[in-house]
Design a protein around this nucleic acid. Sequence first.
DNA 1: ATAATACGTAACCAAATGGATACGCATCAT
DNA 2: ATGATGCGTATCCATTTGGTTACGTATTAT
Lengths: 106, 106
Amino acid sequence: MPQAEQDRSVFRAIADPTRRAILDRLRQGPAPVNELASAFSQSRPAISKHLRILRELNVVSEQRHGRERVYRLEPAELKDIADWILPYRDFWQQSLGNLKSYLEDE
Amino acid sequence: MPQAEQDRSVFRAIADPTRRAILDRLRQGPAPVNELASAFSQSRPAISKHLRILRELNVVSEQRHGRERVYRLEPAELKDIADWILPYRDFWQQSLGNLKSYLEDE
DNA sequence: ATAATACGTAACCAAATGGATACGCATCAT
DNA sequence: ATGATGCGTATCCATTTGGTTACGTATTAT
C-alpha cells in the first residue's frame, strides 16, 4: 500500500488498545507518565510515544509540574467518534426491535 | 513492534477511512461489491479485502444473489464503540458546561 | 459451448505501526 | 556539586497494514 499520507485521525488513535486503556485511566483523573507506564507491560518510551499521538490530536493535554509531566484527559476531540457512531445506534436498536417483535409473534 | 498477536477488534476496523465510508454507504441499504468499489479510487480486490475484515467481525453480512454478493450492514457489533465512547460524553459535556459558566461569569 | 461478468484469493510490495534500547536534559535530593 | 529521578527523543527493527496485479471459479448471457 504505497500511501503517501498518514492518517492521524482520532479513529486511528483509539484503534490501539493501549491508547484506549490510557484514556480510560485518565478518566479517573490526571496522572504523570510513570504512573501510566507502570500500569502496562511496556517500556516507558513506548507509553511516551502513545501519549505524543494523543497529545498531537488534543485528546490529552500535558502540564509540567516540576520534573513530572501530568497528563489530563481532553475528551472534546472524541466527539467525532460519538458523532460518527450515533446514526448506527438507530440501526441496531431497530434490529433489536425487529427481533423482539419477531419473538413475540412466535 | 514485535507483536505476535494481531488486533481484530471493531476499533481497528473503523480506524480505516475507506472502511468507515463503506459502512456509511451501507447505511443507505445493501449493495453489491462492484457498486461499493466504484465509489472509491481503489481496485476491487482492495475493497474485497476491506469487506472481508468487516465480514469476519460481523459488521456486515454477505448474501449471494446469483453471481453478485450483496453486503448488508450488521451494526450490532458496533455497539462496543458506542459503549466505549459513552462515558467520555459526560466529560466533554461537563467541559462545555464549565466553559459556559465561565463565560457567563465574565 | 463460449464468452462475459462478478466476485474472491494468492503473491507481492512499500509504508506505517508499535515496540525496544540508548541517550540527553531538566529538576529534585543530598 | 553530585547523583538520582522523570521524561522526551533518536535510532533501529519486526510485524502489520493496505494497496497492486494476476489468476481462478461460479454464474449469466449469447
